[in-house]
Amino acid sequence: MSAAPQTRERPSLRRLAGDSPAAVLTLVFIGIFIGTDIVNRAQGGGAFLTLKQISTTFLFAAVLGLMAAGQTLVMLTGGVDLSVATTATAGAFAVSRFGTEGSAKAILIALVIGLAIGLVNGIGVALFRVNALIMTLGISTITLGLLTVQAQKQFTSLVPNFVVTLGSGRVLTYIPYDLFVWVPIAALIILGLRYSGIGRMIYAVGDNPVASRLAGVRTWQVLLFVYAICGLLSAAAGILLVGFNNAADLGIAAPFLLPSVAAVVIGGTSIFGGLGGYAGTILGALILTVLDSLLTILNASQAVRQIIYGLIVLALAAIYARATAAE
């Protein structure tokens, strides 16, 4: 056999996007950050590209990052979880409801509730083969109903100081406390997807469920696992969020639902599953967070924000489809 045939590498954005989406996303992130800086200066608001603002961006991004973490795992299996926001709300409520009984207990209860919601989703999708959209949307509605009932009853509400610090405080001026939650979880997910058996199985089930079954994978086990973890991570996001807001209300996490999907898609994870990873999602979450700051500076209304989010998701999904299309 002769040597492998070689051709000149044609440098193109498309090639770059296909080979290392993270590099492109990092450039986009930096680009938007600088753009925001220019806009802010133009409006007389001073510099945006400061350590303080970078720190704030990470502080804000942690909540979205955690919610999108669970979403990434679910979407890698080819599903979607539309209950992440409600699950986060439930976590937030649990913390404030049980806040008077100590932060450890409050956090534990919030996480258990998140895990339980995730397990119910998982049982529906994995065992009863309910379509993921329907199942998670249904559970989300039910959860919100239960929370409304709960909220109408009189109860003491207190967000423990520990949770407030965790969700909004910084150490050494610039390091948000919530990074101590987000960074280890992010590392665990990125490494786990690559170097653990369950990580491989998540990709396998998402890429080809029939082939996974023939390789002996009980796909329901994998699906149950990812939905359960997604519930857990969403509750964790809710804990940080209630710490940041210092109070829980029924709509506290609702604005995060679409961004949790958007961050995953922007991060290059295939909506059909089997391809992608959490590193891209992190960048997606950061990009959306800066974008949000930009829209705030521009004084955009909630409606305009939603339109822009929608457009960005559509544009990136289209670009992604082109870049990875079977040639």
């Binding site: 058996g197 369950i198 491989r200 199985m201 990709y203 396998a204 890429d207 080809n208 029939v210 082939a211 996974s212 023939l214 390789a215 002996g216 994978v217 009980r218 086990q221 295939s270 089997g274 391809l275």
Partner: peptide, 22 residues
């Protein structure tokens, strides 16, 4: 198509059954 994970690497495809148990 019944046996392969088309978007994954040769290595992951070959190793897949190793991790089929919890």
């Amino acid at each position: 198509l019944q046996a392969l994970l088309p978007q994954r690497s040769v290595r992951e495809n070959i190793a897949a059954p190793r991790y089929n148990s919890v």
